[in-house]
Design a protein around this nucleic acid. Structure first.
Lengths: 143, 143
DNA sequence: CTTGACCCTGTACCACGGTACGGGCTGTAC
DNA sequence: GTACAGCCCGTACCGTGGTACAGGGTCAAG
Protein backbone atom coordinates (compact mmCIF):
# COMPACT_ATOMS: atom_id res chain seq x y z
CA UNK A 1 0.00 0.00 0.00
CA UNK A 2 1.47 3.27 -1.16
CA UNK A 3 2.19 5.95 1.39
CA UNK A 4 0.75 9.36 0.58
CA UNK A 5 1.94 12.79 1.63
CA UNK A 6 -0.45 15.30 3.11
CA UNK A 7 -0.41 17.24 -0.14
CA UNK A 8 -1.39 14.20 -2.20
CA UNK A 9 -4.20 13.35 0.19
CA UNK A 10 -5.40 16.96 0.15
CA UNK A 11 -5.52 17.04 -3.63
CA UNK A 12 -7.33 13.71 -3.95
CA UNK A 13 -9.84 14.48 -1.24
CA UNK A 14 -10.46 17.97 -2.56
CA UNK A 15 -9.51 19.86 0.58
CA UNK A 16 -6.61 22.07 1.61
CA UNK A 17 -3.54 20.85 3.47
CA UNK A 18 -4.34 23.21 6.31
CA UNK A 19 -7.81 21.72 6.54
CA UNK A 20 -6.34 18.27 7.07
CA UNK A 21 -4.17 19.53 9.89
CA UNK A 22 -7.20 21.30 11.31
CA UNK A 23 -9.31 18.11 11.25
CA UNK A 24 -6.44 16.27 12.91
CA UNK A 25 -6.37 18.83 15.72
CA UNK A 26 -10.15 18.53 16.09
CA UNK A 27 -9.88 14.76 16.40
CA UNK A 28 -11.77 13.98 13.18
CA UNK A 29 -8.79 12.46 11.45
CA UNK A 30 -6.45 10.11 13.31
CA UNK A 31 -2.84 11.15 13.67
CA UNK A 32 -0.97 9.40 10.90
CA UNK A 33 2.36 7.63 10.91
CA UNK A 34 5.39 9.83 10.43
CA UNK A 35 8.51 9.45 8.40
CA UNK A 36 11.86 9.93 10.10
CA UNK A 37 11.75 13.52 8.86
CA UNK A 38 8.43 14.14 10.57
CA UNK A 39 6.39 14.11 7.33
CA UNK A 40 2.89 12.68 7.72
CA UNK A 41 2.28 9.39 5.93
CA UNK A 42 -1.28 8.52 4.92
CA UNK A 43 -3.03 5.60 3.27
CA UNK A 44 -6.24 5.41 1.24
CA UNK A 45 -8.37 5.24 4.35
CA UNK A 46 -7.54 8.86 5.13
CA UNK A 47 -9.03 9.88 1.80
CA UNK A 48 -12.16 7.86 2.57
CA UNK A 49 -12.49 9.64 5.92
CA UNK A 50 -12.07 13.06 4.32
CA UNK A 51 -14.72 12.25 1.75
CA UNK A 52 -17.01 11.01 4.50
CA UNK A 53 -16.55 14.32 6.27
CA UNK A 54 -17.35 16.25 3.12
CA UNK A 55 -20.57 14.33 2.48
CA UNK A 56 -21.68 14.65 6.07
CA UNK A 57 -21.06 18.39 5.92
CA UNK A 58 -23.25 18.58 2.82
CA UNK A 59 -26.02 16.93 4.83
CA UNK A 60 -25.72 19.64 7.45
CA UNK A 61 -23.81 17.81 10.17
CA UNK A 62 -21.41 19.88 12.26
CA UNK A 63 -17.85 18.73 12.78
CA UNK A 64 -18.71 17.61 16.29
CA UNK A 65 -21.54 15.48 14.98
CA UNK A 66 -19.35 14.10 12.22
CA UNK A 67 -16.85 13.06 14.84
CA UNK A 68 -19.63 11.03 16.42
CA UNK A 69 -20.60 9.49 13.09
CA UNK A 70 -17.01 8.54 12.37
CA UNK A 71 -16.85 6.84 15.73
CA UNK A 72 -20.03 4.87 14.95
CA UNK A 73 -18.58 3.96 11.58
CA UNK A 74 -15.62 2.21 13.16
CA UNK A 75 -17.31 0.93 16.28
CA UNK A 76 -18.20 -2.75 15.92
CA UNK A 77 -20.66 -2.46 18.81
CA UNK A 78 -22.67 0.32 17.19
CA UNK A 79 -26.04 -0.56 15.69
CA UNK A 80 -28.02 0.87 12.82
CA UNK A 81 -30.42 2.15 15.38
CA UNK A 82 -27.62 4.32 16.81
CA UNK A 83 -26.97 5.80 13.39
CA UNK A 84 -30.66 6.37 12.71
CA UNK A 85 -31.00 8.12 16.05
CA UNK A 86 -28.24 10.57 15.14
CA UNK A 87 -29.70 11.16 11.70
CA UNK A 88 -33.23 11.62 13.02
CA UNK A 89 -32.05 14.16 15.58
CA UNK A 90 -30.38 16.05 12.78
CA UNK A 91 -33.55 16.00 10.69
CA UNK A 92 -35.44 17.40 13.67
CA UNK A 93 -32.96 20.23 14.02
CA UNK A 94 -33.09 21.01 10.33
CA UNK A 95 -36.87 21.08 10.36
CA UNK A 96 -36.92 23.42 13.31
CA UNK A 97 -34.58 25.73 11.46
CA UNK A 98 -36.77 25.54 8.36
CA UNK A 99 -39.81 26.51 10.39
CA UNK A 100 -37.91 29.47 11.84
CA UNK A 101 -36.96 30.66 8.41
CA UNK A 102 -40.47 30.16 7.07
CA UNK A 103 -41.86 32.30 9.86
CA UNK A 104 -39.36 35.02 9.01
CA UNK A 105 -40.18 34.78 5.33
CA UNK A 106 -43.92 34.91 5.92
CA UNK A 107 -43.66 37.89 8.23
CA UNK A 108 -41.44 39.74 5.83
CA UNK A 109 -43.54 38.88 2.78
CA UNK A 110 -46.62 40.12 4.57
CA UNK A 111 -44.94 43.41 5.33
CA UNK A 112 -43.77 43.80 1.75
CA UNK A 113 -47.29 43.20 0.50
CA UNK A 114 -48.57 45.83 2.92
CA UNK A 115 -46.01 48.38 1.77
CA UNK A 116 -47.19 49.66 -1.60
CA UNK A 117 -46.57 52.90 -3.43
CA UNK A 118 -43.42 54.93 -3.88
CA UNK A 119 -43.79 57.59 -1.24
CA UNK A 120 -41.32 58.51 1.48
CA UNK A 121 -40.05 55.67 3.62
CA UNK A 122 -41.60 57.36 6.66
CA UNK A 123 -44.79 55.51 7.46
CA UNK A 124 -43.80 52.46 5.41
CA UNK A 125 -45.41 49.45 7.09
CA UNK A 126 -42.11 47.59 7.17
CA UNK A 127 -40.34 50.26 9.17
CA UNK A 128 -43.47 50.88 11.23
CA UNK A 129 -43.60 47.23 12.17
CA UNK A 130 -40.00 47.37 13.27
CA UNK A 131 -40.69 50.52 15.24
CA UNK A 132 -43.74 49.09 16.99
CA UNK A 133 -44.15 48.02 20.58
CA UNK A 134 -45.00 44.44 19.79
CA UNK A 135 -43.17 41.56 18.13
CA UNK A 136 -43.51 41.53 14.37
CA UNK A 137 -46.48 39.43 13.33
CA UNK A 138 -47.63 37.94 10.07
CA UNK A 139 -50.54 40.19 9.07
CA UNK A 140 -52.43 37.67 6.88
CA UNK A 141 -52.70 33.97 6.25
CA UNK A 142 -53.28 30.92 8.47
CA UNK A 143 -51.69 30.65 11.86
CA UNK B 1 -37.25 64.61 28.74
CA UNK B 2 -35.62 62.39 31.32
CA UNK B 3 -32.03 61.33 30.75
CA UNK B 4 -31.41 57.61 31.03
CA UNK B 5 -28.26 55.76 32.00
CA UNK B 6 -26.97 52.92 29.90
CA UNK B 7 -28.15 50.43 32.50
CA UNK B 8 -31.70 51.81 32.46
CA UNK B 9 -31.80 51.70 28.69
CA UNK B 10 -30.43 48.16 28.69
CA UNK B 11 -33.08 46.98 31.12
CA UNK B 12 -35.96 48.63 29.26
CA UNK B 13 -34.79 47.43 25.85
CA UNK B 14 -34.12 43.94 27.11
CA UNK B 15 -30.45 43.80 26.16
CA UNK B 16 -27.19 43.83 28.09
CA UNK B 17 -25.14 46.93 28.76
CA UNK B 18 -22.23 45.39 26.87
CA UNK B 19 -24.49 44.87 23.88
CA UNK B 20 -25.32 48.57 23.79
CA UNK B 21 -21.65 49.49 23.79
CA UNK B 22 -21.09 46.90 21.08
CA UNK B 23 -23.86 48.34 18.88
CA UNK B 24 -22.39 51.78 19.40
CA UNK B 25 -19.00 50.57 18.19
CA UNK B 26 -20.68 48.94 15.18
CA UNK B 27 -22.38 52.20 14.28
CA UNK B 28 -25.91 50.92 14.87
CA UNK B 29 -26.57 53.20 17.80
CA UNK B 30 -25.49 56.84 17.69
CA UNK B 31 -22.96 57.97 20.27
CA UNK B 32 -25.01 59.60 23.02
CA UNK B 33 -24.42 62.77 25.01
CA UNK B 34 -22.19 62.43 28.01
CA UNK B 35 -22.38 63.77 31.50
CA UNK B 36 -19.39 65.66 32.90
CA UNK B 37 -18.32 62.37 34.45
CA UNK B 38 -18.31 60.61 31.09
CA UNK B 39 -21.50 58.63 31.77
CA UNK B 40 -23.64 58.06 28.67
CA UNK B 41 -26.97 59.90 28.63
CA UNK B 42 -29.78 58.45 26.54
CA UNK B 43 -33.33 59.45 25.68
CA UNK B 44 -36.34 57.35 24.68
CA UNK B 45 -35.24 57.25 21.05
CA UNK B 46 -32.34 54.99 21.99
CA UNK B 47 -34.81 52.45 23.35
CA UNK B 48 -36.82 52.67 20.13
CA UNK B 49 -33.68 52.00 18.10
CA UNK B 50 -32.73 49.03 20.26
CA UNK B 51 -36.21 47.58 19.87
CA UNK B 52 -36.01 48.15 16.12
CA UNK B 53 -32.77 46.21 16.07
CA UNK B 54 -34.29 43.37 18.02
CA UNK B 55 -37.30 43.05 15.69
CA UNK B 56 -35.13 43.20 12.60
CA UNK B 57 -32.92 40.48 14.05
CA UNK B 58 -36.02 38.34 14.58
CA UNK B 59 -36.79 38.77 10.88
CA UNK B 60 -33.35 37.47 10.02
CA UNK B 61 -31.54 40.69 9.17
CA UNK B 62 -27.84 40.86 9.99
CA UNK B 63 -26.43 43.79 11.92
CA UNK B 64 -24.99 45.23 8.70
CA UNK B 65 -28.38 45.10 7.05
CA UNK B 66 -30.03 46.58 10.11
CA UNK B 67 -27.59 49.46 9.94
CA UNK B 68 -28.91 50.08 6.42
CA UNK B 69 -32.51 49.89 7.54
CA UNK B 70 -31.87 52.32 10.36
CA UNK B 71 -30.37 54.73 7.86
CA UNK B 72 -33.45 54.43 5.64
CA UNK B 73 -35.64 54.98 8.67
CA UNK B 74 -34.10 58.38 9.34
CA UNK B 75 -33.39 59.41 5.76
CA UNK B 76 -36.07 61.81 4.48
CA UNK B 77 -35.00 61.06 0.89
CA UNK B 78 -35.54 57.31 1.17
CA UNK B 79 -38.60 55.84 -0.49
CA UNK B 80 -40.75 52.86 0.34
CA UNK B 81 -39.37 51.27 -2.75
CA UNK B 82 -35.91 51.36 -1.15
CA UNK B 83 -37.23 49.59 1.92
CA UNK B 84 -39.12 47.01 -0.12
CA UNK B 85 -35.98 46.31 -2.13
CA UNK B 86 -34.04 45.51 1.03
CA UNK B 87 -36.82 43.36 2.38
CA UNK B 88 -37.30 41.48 -0.89
CA UNK B 89 -33.57 40.72 -1.11
CA UNK B 90 -33.76 39.32 2.40
CA UNK B 91 -36.74 37.15 1.49
CA UNK B 92 -34.78 35.79 -1.46
CA UNK B 93 -31.86 34.90 0.78
CA UNK B 94 -34.12 33.25 3.32
CA UNK B 95 -35.82 31.20 0.61
CA UNK B 96 -32.50 30.02 -0.76
CA UNK B 97 -31.51 28.92 2.72
CA UNK B 98 -34.83 27.12 3.16
CA UNK B 99 -34.29 25.22 -0.10
CA UNK B 100 -30.80 24.21 1.05
CA UNK B 101 -32.17 22.89 4.30
CA UNK B 102 -35.02 21.09 2.57
CA UNK B 103 -32.55 19.30 0.31
CA UNK B 104 -30.55 18.21 3.34
CA UNK B 105 -33.65 17.05 5.13
CA UNK B 106 -34.92 15.11 2.12
CA UNK B 107 -31.60 13.40 1.55
CA UNK B 108 -31.29 12.48 5.20
CA UNK B 109 -34.90 11.31 5.50
CA UNK B 110 -34.41 9.10 2.48
CA UNK B 111 -31.36 7.53 4.05
CA UNK B 112 -33.15 6.96 7.33
CA UNK B 113 -36.00 5.25 5.51
CA UNK B 114 -33.49 3.03 3.74
CA UNK B 115 -31.80 2.04 7.00
CA UNK B 116 -34.07 -0.44 8.71
CA UNK B 117 -33.37 -3.17 11.18
CA UNK B 118 -31.21 -3.26 14.26
CA UNK B 119 -28.07 -4.94 12.99
CA UNK B 120 -24.52 -3.71 13.21
CA UNK B 121 -23.87 -0.21 11.93
CA UNK B 122 -21.56 -1.65 9.32
CA UNK B 123 -23.44 -1.67 6.06
CA UNK B 124 -26.05 0.79 7.27
CA UNK B 125 -27.16 2.79 4.22
CA UNK B 126 -26.55 6.09 5.96
CA UNK B 127 -22.90 5.36 6.63
CA UNK B 128 -22.57 3.67 3.24
CA UNK B 129 -23.86 6.78 1.53
CA UNK B 130 -21.31 8.86 3.39
CA UNK B 131 -18.58 6.41 2.47
CA UNK B 132 -19.48 6.35 -1.20
CA UNK B 133 -17.66 7.83 -4.14
CA UNK B 134 -20.49 10.08 -5.23
CA UNK B 135 -22.29 13.02 -3.65
CA UNK B 136 -25.17 11.99 -1.45
CA UNK B 137 -28.40 11.87 -3.41
CA UNK B 138 -32.03 11.72 -2.48
CA UNK B 139 -32.98 8.13 -3.31
CA UNK B 140 -36.72 8.68 -3.81
CA UNK B 141 -39.23 11.44 -4.50
CA UNK B 142 -39.50 14.11 -7.19
CA UNK B 143 -36.47 15.98 -8.41
C1' DC C 1 24.88 20.58 -5.06
C1' DT C 2 21.68 23.85 -5.69
C1' DT C 3 17.03 25.18 -6.59
C1' DG C 4 12.35 25.02 -5.81
C1' DA C 5 8.41 22.64 -4.28
C1' DC C 6 6.91 20.59 -0.50
C1' DC C 7 6.51 19.73 4.47
C1' DC C 8 6.93 20.97 9.65
C1' DT C 9 5.33 23.86 13.90
C1' DG C 10 2.95 27.45 16.21
C1' DT C 11 0.30 31.28 16.08
C1' DA C 12 -2.70 34.80 14.35
C1' DC C 13 -6.63 36.02 11.70
C1' DC C 14 -11.52 36.02 9.12
C1' DA C 15 -16.85 36.57 9.83
C1' DC C 16 -20.73 36.93 13.24
C1' DG C 17 -22.82 38.66 17.36
C1' DG C 18 -21.97 39.32 21.16
C1' DT C 19 -20.00 38.26 26.39
C1' DA C 20 -16.64 38.75 30.03
C1' DC C 21 -13.05 40.73 32.60
C1' DG C 22 -9.66 43.78 34.88
C1' DG C 23 -8.64 48.02 36.85
C1' DG C 24 -10.38 52.27 37.98
C1' DC C 25 -13.81 56.29 38.62
C1' DT C 26 -18.70 57.96 40.03
C1' DG C 27 -23.23 58.37 42.11
C1' DT C 28 -26.24 57.55 45.66
C1' DA C 29 -28.11 55.90 49.93
C1' DC C 30 -27.45 55.22 54.56
C1' DG D 1 -18.01 59.30 55.04
C1' DT D 2 -18.13 55.08 53.42
C1' DA D 3 -20.04 51.15 51.19
C1' DC D 4 -21.63 49.34 47.10
C1' DA D 5 -23.90 49.51 42.77
C1' DG D 6 -23.14 51.28 38.54
C1' DC D 7 -20.42 53.23 34.97
C1' DC D 8 -15.92 53.99 32.23
C1' DC D 9 -12.31 51.97 28.84
C1' DG D 10 -9.67 48.57 26.41
C1' DT D 11 -9.02 44.12 25.41
C1' DA D 12 -9.62 39.25 25.33
C1' DC D 13 -12.60 35.48 24.66
C1' DC D 14 -16.72 32.25 23.02
C1' DG D 15 -18.18 28.92 18.92
C1' DT D 16 -17.87 27.48 13.99
C1' DG D 17 -14.92 26.12 10.24
C1' DG D 18 -11.45 26.98 8.56
C1' DT D 19 -7.32 30.19 6.17
C1' DA D 20 -2.86 32.48 6.32
C1' DC D 21 1.63 33.35 7.64
C1' DA D 22 6.44 33.21 9.54
C1' DG D 23 10.48 30.79 10.04
C1' DG D 24 12.37 26.85 9.44
C1' DG D 25 13.64 21.68 7.63
C1' DT D 26 13.33 18.13 3.62
C1' DC D 27 13.03 15.86 -0.83
C1' DA D 28 13.76 15.14 -5.69
C1' DA D 29 15.14 16.79 -10.21
C1' DG D 30 18.52 18.64 -12.94
Amino acid sequence: MKALTVGQVAKRAGVGVETIRFYERQGLLAEPQRRASGYRQYDEEAIAVLRFIRRAKELGFTLIEIKGLLALRLDGEATRSDVRTQAAAKVGGIEARIRDLQRMRDALSGLIAACHGDGAATGCPILEALNGEHPVEVPTGPN
